[in-house]
Simulated scan of single mutants.
Amino acid sequence: MLFRRGSLACAVSTCMHFGMRRTRNIRLLLAFDGSAYAGWQRQAAAPTVQGTVEEALTRLTGTPVTLHGAGRTDAGVHARGMVANGRSESSIPPNGLVRALNNMLPPDIRVLDADEAPPDFHSRFDALGKTYCYDLCLTPIQNPLQRLYCAHVPRPFQLEPVAACLDLLTGTHDFAAFEGSGSRDRTHSSGRGAIRTLREAQCFPLAGCPAHFRFRFTGDGFLRHMVRNLVGTLLEVAAGKYGPQEFQDILTSGDRGRAGPTAAARGLCLHRLYYDPPWPTGVCLATVACEEYSVGGREKKARPRACPDGSGTAAGEAGSGTELPARQESGMN
């Protein structure tokens, strides 16, 4: 009879009146250096980001907490804006969670923001899109300070054919040719298979960092190793092995064997997630189409962005409307 009205508000009010502990859906914005971890997903015999944050949350709240991440990054892949959520009866306010967790977590993982999400929010299933960036160093000798965050590829790099191929990627396609093994159960005919939609695919030089480039992809979802396989194939285009027509043929073939190798994990970073309503405030997928440069790296207007080692700026990186909140943790690169 207590919940006869059937509303969540009624249930919450009743719990508070009788001193019952209310379960909250806690949402976290995380940044991490993935170098020391076997990826995001919890594993029994290897350190992972999910396992490390869950352990800290469990110690902090006194009860086990299971996190649901917006994606499963591979070993060595980094994140500036991973979103995860989990349920807890802890009454610690969100700002207290941020401070306490950052005191408990190792320095290569930081909680940038936290809030109480709606009860039905799920970081993975509610995500409208993601942005990944991949950084390259083409110099003969790489600055050792970049080695964990920027792939070293000392080979010829022609941007024009790469830009033409990137133009081919925007829109909705079957990306089976760039899908890693284990991405999904191919015996299942339901679902969308390898079909994904890319709103943004570009490559641009990093100003102040000679022979450094950044790939940037925004889409409604990504298959396992999809970005790294795309980059690996585009590097073959940049070196003259394939032209735009051959790249188009690879895309339409759906044959992973025809595409290029998988690029190294260390150059890849999960940049941000998009939700409706936006979280954090201002991170909105709709703004991607309005950013200040066009697909393929053909700039309309430059905005500064840090190079992989923290020096210089990126000539083509946008910020309007989609940057993370100003109150980021200082440990974020």
Rank of each mutant, 00 (worst) to 15 (best):
F213T: 02
D74S: 08
Y274N: 02
L101Q: 10
Y242T: 01
T48Q: 07
R110M: 08
P107K: 12
R22F: 12
E246T: 07
M332T: 09
D167H: 11
A315Y: 04
L268N: 02
R305S: 15
H152M: 06
V162P: 00
G232N: 05
G191F: 13
R214T: 12
A265C: 13
T252P: 00
A318Y: 06
T287D: 15
R99N: 03
C269Y: 05
F178H: 02
L166Y: 03
N85C: 09
A31Q: 03
A326M: 09
P107W: 07
A31T: 03
G69F: 09
D120V: 08
V227L: 12
Y274T: 00
G316H: 07
S91G: 11
A265F: 05
M104V: 05
V83S: 00
T233R: 05
Q202W: 01
A207H: 09
D108W: 12
V153W: 01
R27P: 00
G86P: 04
E291Y: 13
N95V: 09
E317Q: 14
A177W: 12
V77Q: 10
S35Q: 13
K130E: 01
L206I: 15
V162K: 03
E200Q: 15
F215V: 00
F175R: 02
D108V: 07
R196A: 03
E292V: 06
C290E: 10
A306E: 03
D220S: 07
G69L: 11
S183K: 11
R147K: 11
F157R: 04
T281A: 13
E89A: 11
A9K: 08
V237F: 03
A265P: 01
R192M: 15
R24M: 00
L112P: 00
R22W: 13
R155M: 08
R110N: 08
T322A: 14
L285K: 06
Q158P: 00
Q146H: 06
A315H: 02
A56K: 07
Q158R: 15
R305K: 06
L8S: 07
V65L: 08
P308R: 04
L148S: 13
A306Q: 09
G208P: 07
D108T: 08
D249W: 01
D113F: 12
Y275F: 14
C209G: 01
R72E: 09
V227D: 04
F204D: 04
